[in-house]
Design a protein around this nucleic acid. Structure first.
Lengths: 345, 345
DNA sequence: ATGAAAGCGCTAACAA
DNA sequence: TTGTTAGCGCTTTCAT
């Protein structure tokens, strides 16, 4: 383990002072250096396999060239493309990211935010932050650049990037009504997650827009965004409102769970009940009958959030819109059909 | 942005020397400190919201408490559970991880290894390293603790953790022959990836073990582990060896591609051709007809690799077996059935 | 049991 | 254009 070359080593090798070496190696050099010294230094650096010591740089400049990426769970297919999107803009700028999984637990969210701060990250991209979690607000108030993804934090100036949840829900809802559905139920996501809340609101708004009384529509709220909860909620809905002809799921996994519930009840999709999801997860198209859903831009969302964070880090606050809403796309598949007996009116 | 409290601040607040503060806060304190000083210091630390400056710590100790995790692509469902497994053991020990995606490109693999070294990571878990990529060997030789996952690097002492590829392939192969299949073809993975190579070898070995002449079996090699290549290879196989009754895919995605090829040819699975995969990706069970496959331990593999890396970092080389092979499990689904005309003998 | 002092590698005034 | 100097916050050796 021959330890790494330092500026001092290069200085010794070239006969110039370490500060000169530092300057010669600085890509955006402020002070002018004679060409031959620059060349000599760079040659020596290459020769010695010099790599700057990040810790020393950080200690001195208070910049780690590292950002924190907080996500609920990388195992959720929603997040890997986001992470890649972030990486695609940060890596070329010399930033590395430390990713942490919060499992949507308040305790973990606070603790992990703490470790990121301790490590002196230059900024944080916070994906799907819990609603009503103040620690992130405090961190932002203390001057740490933060951008949230999939989540607006009320009452703050923290810039956020979200998909157009409302438009997505409106699109599926309109799609369902265009087939004649009126008895449309909703499996809502957890209320403490912003997507859960927004999509539920979108559902209610869409119902009103189509002249339906929201209070007459069945809504069951899932505790988690998973198949098990989707199944439970679907049963709840079908027990409470047997006339339901369509179920609008707050995401794909809930819809897949509902599909299972239909199967267990001997009901078919879309024959007996139409079904829709949200997100368009990978492989979804291969699962019969083919779930109609809403495709969101994950990679692009990551990129956008990263670009905004870079601006914040640079201090160019003016360049960052407080909110960015990314367009979504309705994906029509076979899980929606006309209701058996269209209950019009 | 009121800047963070330092040891000096605590020293000032408590009236003791900064070195005393450092010692009082050290969890595994070497030198004895009087109880009341310890208490006073810890109280002040809490009061001031003290968080150690990692950069200063790193500069001084040459330890970053950070590891690098190199993976081909987090978007591939294989890797998120591995990452969580790694995190589950590293995080409690105070380590953070920097994850980088190599996209299985030699250039990226070398460059990203470089940035990890520059950042002074204490160790690296390298998942699915490219075969014949020497940079990682050099890094290990220079003293950097490294553990590889899904990959053995020949001719080195680098510890590796792999799934029992051979046993997995042997199990599916035996499963196929137990249904009477003899004309078994293989869609092999890329030869420059260890899983591709190992599974191909496993296929050949299994064939011999069952008294089949490997040279009589059709093998088509995919350029990538994706559906498109699976489809291409399946067509190639069915064109070249029309008598094929079963296709053993090197992974699930290749098998799904093959499934698509069958569909396009008007063939059914398992009616006309049986099909098997490897990995048991999420949602696979919901895709008809239900792919028979091999389940591997991803989370556990990550945990194991992380534990081994910790031992290496601690200098406890003796505690780390050079190779760890994790058991796999055959998952029987409906994609395998008896061939229409069992070609026995 | 505690203090003093050095120094990790780097950058950034300030001088020259 | 280059050198000198100080110091970021921490750990650790050596005194006391």
């Amino acid at each position: 383990m021959n330890k790494r070359a330092t500026l001092k080593d290069i200085a010794k090798a070239t006969g110039v002072h370490v500060s000169t070496v530092s300057r010669a190696l600085d890509p955006n050099r402020a002070t002018p250096i004679s060409d031959d010294v620059v060349k000599k230094v760079q040659d020596a650096a290459r020769e010695l396999g010099y790599r700057p010591n990040r810790a020393a740089y950080s200690l001195r400049t208070n910049r780690t060239m590292t950002i924190g990426v907080m996500i609920p769970d990388i195992t959720n297919t929603l997040f890997p493309p986001i992470v890649r999107g972030i990486e695609s803009v940060m890596e070329p700028k010399g930033y590395a990211s430390i990713m942490v999984n919060t499992d949507s637990q308040r305790g973990r969210e606070v603790a992990l935010l703490g470790t990121l701060q301790e490590r002196g990250v230059d900024g944080i991209i916070h994906t799907a932050a819990l609603r009503n979690e103040p620690s992130i607000v405090e961190a932002a108030a203390s001057g740490l650049p933060i951008v949230t993804l999939n989540r607006k934090i009320e009452g703050t100036e923290i810039p956020y990037v979200i998909n157009d949840e409302q438009a997505g829900i409106a699109a599926v809802f309109a799609h369902l009504t265009s087939f004649g559905h009126r008895q449309i139920a909703h499996i809502a996501g957890p209320a403490d997650l912003s997507t859960g809340k927004l999509r539920r609101e979108g559902f209610l708004a869409a119902a009103r827009a189509h002249g339906l009384d929201p209070s007459g529509l069945a809504i069951s709220e899932a505790l988690r965004f998973d198949e098990e909860e989707g199944e439970r909620c679907a049963h709840e809905i079908l027990d409470a409102a047997p006339g339901t002809t369509a179920i609008l799921g707050a995401n794909d996994r809930l819809a897949l769970g509902a599909l299972r519930a239909l199967g267990k009840r001997g009901l078919t999709c879309p024959g007996d009940v139409s079904l829709t999801g949200f997100n368009d997860m990978p492989l979804l198209d291969l699962i019969p009958p083919g779930l109609t859903t809403v495709r969101i831009q994950q990679f692009e969302a990551g990129q956008t959030a990263a670009r905004h964070l870079l601006s914040l880090i640079r201090g160019d606050v003016g360049a960052v819109p407080q909110r960015t809403i990314l367009p979504v796309e309705l994906i029509r598949r076979a899980s929606v059909a006309a209701p058996r007996r269209a209950a019009r009116g």
